[in-house]
Write a protein that binds this DNA or RNA. Sequence first.
DNA 1: TTTTTAAGATTACATGTGTAATCTTTTCTG
DNA 2: CAGAAAAGATTACACATGTAATCTTAAAAA
Lengths: 130, 130
Amino acid sequence: MSNDNPKADISNAEFEVLDVLWDDYPATSSDIVERLNQKKPWHDKTVKTLLSRLVKKGVVDFDKAQRQYLYRPLIAREDYTKKEATSFVSRLFKGKVAPLVAGFANQNSLSQQDVDELKALIKQWEQNND
Amino acid sequence: MSNDNPKADISNAEFEVLDVLWDDYPATSSDIVERLNQKKPWHDKTVKTLLSRLVKKGVVDFDKAQRQYLYRPLIAREDYTKKEATSFVSRLFKGKVAPLVAGFANQNSLSQQDVDELKALIKQWEQNND
DNA sequence: TTTTTAAGATTACATGTGTAATCTTTTCTG
DNA sequence: CAGAAAAGATTACACATGTAATCTTAAAAA
């Protein structure tokens, strides 16, 4: 069954499942359980429940392969994270990213690599907006 | 009653209340309701409930002034947003801010001002980490 | 072929959350 | 002073979420 308009929010636990699914798919529920168990000691029944909820919410779908299901995400990780980031920044920082980055900076959570990447982004941006 | 270790998560609705409280405090519940109503059509009973929950969670406290309460936050907005941002970025972007900013950039959500601020942050950072 | 197993479906259940309504008590108002 | 209004406390209630256990069914094993 497919759902063309993914709705509803994805809960924290559901996100963890989606997260490992994004890493590599299609995947069976056992695959997913196994990957999750590298990090979270979740019961396989729990993971199945979360998968079902994701399917019901229209963000994951599956194809049947014998008696197992092969799950795959219906939304791209980048689209999801972009949307979430936008809403997060809008809620907590009035839509401005700089203050968020400032928090990282004054917390010593910025690495040289982060800074290099930010500089590259800025250079790129300036080329497009001269 | 005061609670020295603010625990528990702040829900979305609770955050909205805290958000306007941060804007100016101490404030009575009516003040808060009024400010919120600039944006959200929330019933005053609803706001009271949210305030109570914030108090119970130890993130807001109050002093009695006659029969009204004067509410004030027990945590600073900056501390809260910093913590939330860290956990958000860690969950969705493996802890790296740059990819988050990249999402904004390629979505045309970066303004000249954002870029200026980011450049200033970077300059600052480089001075501290030469 | 009978039995065991394992996949997914269904059910469970406590706690959180959104969204108030009602209750209690204390001050205004007339 | 009696009644109305208003502040906070308590109660309500449906839906979401975390976290599974049980049920059903089909496939694999003996």
